[in-house]
Every structure is written in structure tokens, then in C-alpha cells.
Simulated scan of single mutants.
Amino acid sequence: MNELWKYIGENEVNEENIGDLAEFKRSQVNYRLTYFDVRTNGVRYLKTLIYNLAGRLSEENWDRLRRISGRELGRPFAVTYDGESVDLDYLRAVRDLEFIERNVDLDGARVLEIGAGYGRTCHTLMSNKDISGYTVIDLPTTMALSRKYLREVLPDEQFKKVTFISVDEIETSLGDAVFDLCINIDSLAEMDVETVRYYLSLIAGRGRHFYTNNPVGKYMDKSLDDHARGEDAIARALDAGPLTDVIDVHDNRAVREQARGFVAAYRPHDSWHCVADEWAEPFTWYWQALFRAPAARR
């Protein structure tokens, strides 16, 4: 026996530590034998996920990714695959773009994004398509980040096409603008229902297409994060968004069943048609859909 396994046997995997088998697959015993401790190896698992997703990227998506310069800003957790640095945010962004492009011609398009985060989607679309104008609506605090980030990663002529509108200035700043594509990724599900209805109405009145990528429902699986943000935060999350059913988000049938409600909940208006919808990899409980306004609007 080598010194490593001598140590493991004396200190980690032995009859005393094995104990009752009821929970051993979530214990240090099994983490030494099969896979890395999930409690302390989050980055390892994240990089493994990125690596596997990168191995499945289409050549078209590799091309989309290569066109996006400045992705390394902010030191994202990344892997190197076929000589390219890849992180999860931009992997998701190019796949979002792929889904949208199947049904929307983005060259010359005017885009509205509600809740842009730090700006990865804007960065991706502006780097790949001839976008004529990109409008961001967001909270002032978050918008401070996206404005700063996009100023760094976009060339001046591209950054000048981006308009930033605070949530409290929507009515006074949008004017009579209409948009070929409206986008919301992972934020309507965090708003109160009245706010969601407001934004869907805004999209219905000003948009020609709407792309959304959001959770299909809520979950209460404490094993995922041990409810690290506290029970009050859990309660707030459970009340937010248009879909509040608690489901097993790691049951594909439960997610698929809930997806029917997702399409109904995110349709901007009854007259709008859902062009396409499907699971939004890699997170199990996310769904994506593209809606199109009635012909008279187009």
C-alpha cells in the first residue's frame, strides 16, 4: 500500500467512518472513492461543464464565439478548448443567438433588452450582427455595470449604438421607438407579477419578436445550495415571476410539463405566435421561446 492510500485508510475510508450506509454517497467516504466533494469543488464541476459543452459546440457557434473580442474581461472561469478560451456566459450567449437566428433576421435590426446583466447578450449580438440600435432597460445600479463593461469591450462605433434607459425613465425616454427583437434573459422570473405584465405589454406594443430564456418554475431542493442566502431570500424568490409552482427541477418530465405553462406565461399577447420553444441548456429548469407579433405588426 502506498503512503497516500495508507493515509486515506487510516483517516477517511475505514469501518469507523463508513458507519450507516443510509447517507454514505453524500459523505467524505464516497467522495474519496468516486467523485469530487460537491461541497468544495464547485469550480472544478463548473469547468467540467464548460469543457463538455465546448466539445459539443457547432462550427457556426465557434465562429460566433471567435467574433466576440474582450470576453476575458473580468477573469471569468474558463477552459481552453482547441486553443480557444471558453466560459459559460458566452457559451450560453452564442447558443441564445443561434436559437434566435433560426427565425429572425438580425442584420439591421433594432433590439430592446430588458435586464441586460453585465451586457453579455448585447456584446454577443453586436459582435456578430449588423445591429442598427440596441436599447437596454435596467435598474440604475445594474446598468452602471453594463455601461462600463460594454464601453470596454465594444469598439466606439458599436458602443454609440447602445442606448441605456433606467426603469424610471421608460415612458419619457422610449418615445415612439419600435423594435425588431425584444429580449429578456433570466430576470422576468425575479420580478413581481405586475411588473412582468407591464413589460409584456410594452413588448406587445413595440416589438415584432420576443425572445425569452427563464426558469419554468421554482424549487425547494436544499441540497443544491443549503439555502445559503437564508429563508427570507427563499421566500422572496418563491413569490417572484409569473411561474411560482414548485417542481422537481431535475426531473425532465416535470420540466417539460411545466414548459407548456411557460409558453403561455411569457406570450406578450394572445395574438402573438410562439415560433419555437425548447429546453435552454445547460440548466435543467430553464426554457427558451421565441414569439412573433401578428402579421399586421410586421
Score class of each variant (00 low, 15 high):
residue 185 I to S: 14
residue 169 E to M: 02
residue 51 Y to L: 07
residue 269 H to S: 14
residue 90 Y to Q: 08
residue 184 N to S: 15
residue 81 Y to H: 15
residue 122 C to F: 02
residue 169 E to T: 02
residue 237 A to E: 09
residue 83 G to P: 00
residue 252 N to P: 12
residue 183 I to G: 13
residue 284 T to P: 08
residue 134 Y to N: 08
residue 34 T to N: 15
residue 206 R to M: 09
residue 97 L to S: 09
residue 285 W to E: 09
residue 106 L to V: 08
residue 252 N to M: 13
residue 1 M to P: 12
residue 135 T to E: 03
residue 289 A to N: 07
residue 70 G to D: 04
residue 89 D to T: 12
residue 131 I to T: 04
residue 173 S to M: 06
residue 43 V to A: 13
residue 84 E to N: 14
residue 279 W to I: 06
residue 297 R to W: 10
residue 238 L to V: 03
residue 129 K to G: 03
residue 123 H to C: 02
residue 242 P to G: 11
residue 244 T to E: 00
residue 241 G to W: 04
residue 151 R to A: 10
residue 62 W to L: 15
residue 248 D to A: 09
residue 29 V to P: 05
residue 236 R to G: 12
residue 35 Y to H: 15
residue 253 R to T: 11
residue 292 R to I: 06
residue 168 D to H: 05
residue 257 E to Y: 06
residue 67 R to K: 15
residue 127 S to N: 05
residue 101 E to K: 05
residue 136 V to S: 00
residue 228 A to D: 11
residue 93 A to P: 04
residue 61 N to P: 03
residue 240 A to T: 00
residue 233 A to G: 04
residue 196 V to R: 02
residue 200 L to I: 11
residue 273 H to D: 15
residue 76 P to F: 02
residue 140 P to G: 05
residue 61 N to L: 09
residue 140 P to I: 04
residue 126 M to D: 01
residue 14 N to M: 00
residue 171 E to M: 04
residue 284 T to C: 07
residue 95 R to T: 10
residue 186 D to W: 07
residue 112 L to Y: 05
residue 58 S to Q: 04
residue 32 R to I: 10
residue 128 N to H: 07
residue 135 T to V: 11
residue 225 D to V: 02
residue 199 Y to D: 04
residue 78 A to K: 12
residue 257 E to P: 01
residue 124 T to Q: 03
residue 227 H to S: 10
residue 220 M to Q: 14
residue 174 L to A: 05
residue 143 M to P: 00
residue 6 K to I: 05
residue 11 N to A: 06
residue 177 A to V: 11
residue 74 G to V: 08
residue 250 H to E: 12
